[in-house]
Simulated assay, not measured.
Amino acid sequence: MRAFVFPGQGSQKIGMGVELAEASTAAREVFEEVDDALGQKLFQIMKDGPEDALTLTENAQPAIMANAMAVLRVLEKDANISLTEAGDCVAGHSLGEYTALCAAGAFSLADTARLLKLRGQAMQAAVPVGEGAMAALLGADIEKAQALADAAAEGQICTVANDNDPGQVVISGHREAIERAIELVKDHGIKRGILLPVSAPFHCPLMQPAADAMAEALAATSPAAFRLPLYANVTADEVTEPAEAQRLLVEQVTGRVRWRESVLAMRAAGVEEFVELGGKVLGPMIVRTDKEAKTTSVISMEDIEALAKEI
């Protein structure tokens, strides 16, 4: 069995998608459609920067999605590989869940771009700049991370945001609480805590205003039936019903990204190979979670050609 997986925020970089756009009409059409949907020249920012414009949450989220969907469209149109025939399920890390649903047919490309633009804006606006923070805990399992978050909270929000793999957990919340947590890492048997260069504290209760905004947006643009099951971030379980996917996308804004558990659930269901489209972020997490899992990263035309030969 094969899962197609899609990366989250942080995988953006200047020049993303350029090689694909130069080599394939299918890729160019994706970037043009996203630009049209958003009424902005997002691909120009992806191509030329400036970097701070691409890093903005409201630009990074649709850009990462567009890049992954361009890879998928080239696979489908140029290499004649159907996602539904080649894959058994989909999953995505945070914003990647929207890409996964788009890939599986739940949302159109234009609607996905607009939803992610709004999601980025809403997440940025939910907490004043400087009041929230996130930190990566290296050498921390979920139990150690939870104990640290509880100890550092002191009445503020400090919670596990991303359970990425057995040695990397991300916490999120009020800046003071996150800074206290970093100071306490050694006391909890954790190797290191690193403040992340993010503009808002994602996946924690401080994001409730953004969750409310997404509930409204998703009520107006609800997912259609999708062609492959989705393993959802919030539950780490298989989802096949559009209404459930819609509810979980709202919960995901404030909820934990249970990526490690999602990988284990897919493995338990029989998935042997994970193909990451548009990034090289999830593969290492998957291997650290299960060393027996096979991972493939597909970004370039060369990667696409190699995958086409294998499938």
Results as ranks from 00 to 15, higher is better:
residue 162 N to K: 01
residue 228 L to Y: 10
residue 249 L to C: 02
residue 76 E to V: 09
residue 2 R to E: 06
residue 268 A to R: 08
residue 54 L to E: 03
residue 261 E to L: 13
residue 81 I to Q: 02
residue 31 F to R: 01
residue 284 P to N: 10
residue 79 A to W: 10
residue 62 P to T: 03
residue 166 P to G: 13
residue 164 N to C: 06
residue 27 A to D: 11
residue 185 V to L: 02
residue 206 L to R: 05
residue 303 D to A: 02
residue 146 Q to M: 05
residue 94 S to W: 09
residue 231 Y to T: 15
residue 264 L to R: 05
residue 302 E to W: 13
residue 130 G to E: 10
residue 100 A to D: 06
residue 16 M to I: 04
residue 157 I to H: 09
residue 39 G to L: 02
residue 33 E to L: 11
residue 105 G to V: 01
residue 230 L to Q: 02
residue 286 I to L: 14
residue 96 G to N: 07
residue 270 G to L: 11
residue 2 R to I: 02
residue 300 S to V: 14
residue 150 D to C: 12
residue 28 R to D: 03
residue 229 P to H: 04
residue 278 G to M: 03
residue 157 I to V: 15
residue 5 V to F: 11
residue 195 L to F: 04
residue 35 D to R: 09
residue 151 A to Y: 12
residue 124 Q to C: 06
residue 160 V to C: 00
residue 306 A to V: 08
residue 91 A to L: 12
residue 39 G to V: 03
residue 63 A to M: 15
residue 84 T to W: 00
residue 188 H to R: 01
residue 70 A to M: 07
residue 39 G to R: 08
residue 304 I to V: 13
residue 75 L to T: 05
residue 137 L to C: 12
residue 195 L to E: 15
residue 50 P to S: 07
residue 37 A to Y: 10
residue 11 S to K: 01
residue 218 L to W: 07
residue 12 Q to P: 15
residue 139 G to R: 03
residue 194 I to D: 11
residue 98 Y to C: 07
residue 303 D to I: 00
residue 101 L to D: 09
residue 147 A to F: 03
residue 214 M to I: 01
residue 263 V to D: 14
residue 222 S to I: 03
residue 102 C to D: 01
residue 305 E to N: 14
residue 29 E to M: 13
residue 309 K to D: 01
residue 196 L to Q: 05
residue 114 R to V: 08
residue 241 E to A: 14
residue 231 Y to G: 10
residue 107 F to L: 08
residue 30 V to R: 04
residue 206 L to E: 05
residue 253 V to I: 06
residue 61 Q to D: 10
residue 183 E to H: 13
residue 305 E to W: 05
residue 34 V to K: 05
residue 115 L to S: 14
residue 17 G to T: 06
residue 147 A to P: 12
residue 260 R to Y: 07
residue 191 K to P: 02
